[in-house]
């Protein structure tokens, strides 16, 4: 027994070490954002809000933040809708060329972003759709729909096989069954899918840089600063976005948990 305790101790230590590895860059990014040095080095300079003041006073950053919110909101709704439809089709039906159908949906994430970006730019400008906010939205929805599909498909797997047919036997139409049985059942998966696709879209810079034209999103601004003259504004933007999105996610999580608890108590 003591041997197992010893082993557990090692494993937990290892786990903590892994978390340290994952969170080190995030922590340092936060530290550098409050550091007065133009080029962060060790030892640190003084505490400073300079970089926050800079980004706060830059209307370009605000515009980018608004663009990012629009893009990720529309993308997550579109991608989740597409993902749900596909997952349901896969779950419910057998049809010809189903393999091809699924490949069509699942392939985009296997293409490196930089290639997808290049192809998207060439294609969208060919059909006269480049340089707009919705160019980014179209591209991002293609990229994230497979994630939505995967999450929702997993949930559909857990559904009681007889549930849907039972609803039909009780006289519900297919549409009503969808509305009152399937959708409520998938609700948690749909919410997770909305969050995940929004997060992926919110941090994507390669495609956005290529197709956005003058409509920058936050990651595009970060990329421009990193390529141009790297300064801690990127840390300030990163930290600000991080805490904002974390607040939203945690709020949503807590809201979701209490809502679930209430449901159980009924």
């Amino acid at each position: 027994m003591t041997k197992e305790k010893y082993l557990n101790f090692i494993l937990i230590t290892y786990l903590i070490f892994i978390f340290v590895f994952i969170f080190t860059p995030i922590a340092f990014s936060v530290i550098f954002s409050f550091n007065s040095q133009r080029f962060p080095t060790i030892p640190l300079g003084n505490f400073s809000l300079e970089w926050y003041i800079k980004i706060f006073n830059d209307p370009g950053v605000w515009q980018a933040a608004i663009n990012s919110v629009i893009v990720s909101l529309v993308t997550c709704i579109l991608a989740t809708f597409l993902g749900f439809c596909t997952a349901y089709s896969d779950y419910r039906y057998r049809f010809k060329f189903k393999g091809l159908y699924l490949a069509l949906v699942l392939l985009p994430p296997t293409i490196p972003l930089i290639i997808l970006a290049l192809a998207m730019l060439a294609w969208l400008s060919k059909i006269g759709m480049s340089g707009q906010l919705w160019s980014i939205i179209c591209a991002h929805s293609v990229l994230t729909a497979p994630f939505a599909m995967a999450i929702i498909r997993l949930r559909l797997n857990q559904i009681d096989p007889d549930l849907e047919s039972a609803a039909w036997n009780l006289g519900g139409s297919e549409w009503a069954t969808m509305r009152y049985v399937i959708l409520p059942y998938c609700k948690p998966a749909i919410i997770s899918s909305l969050c995940l696709t929004a997060a992926v879209s919110f941090d994507e810079f390669a495609i956005s840089w290529f197709v956005s034209g003058l409509n920058k999103t936050v990651p595009v601004i970060i990329l421009e600063i990193v390529q141009g003259n790297i300064d801690p504004q990127v840390n300030a933007i990163g930290t600000f976005v991080f805490f904002t999105s974390m607040t939203l996610v945690i709020t949503a999580q807590i809201f979701f948990l209490t809502w679930q608890m209430k449901g159980k108590n009924k």
Binding site: T41, G228, I230
Partner: peptide, 12 residues
């Protein structure tokens, strides 16, 4: 390096 990397690597 690109410009960002050039700045950083000369500085540190």
């Amino acid at each position: 390096f690109d410009y960002g990397g050039t700045f950083n690597s000369l500085k540190n």
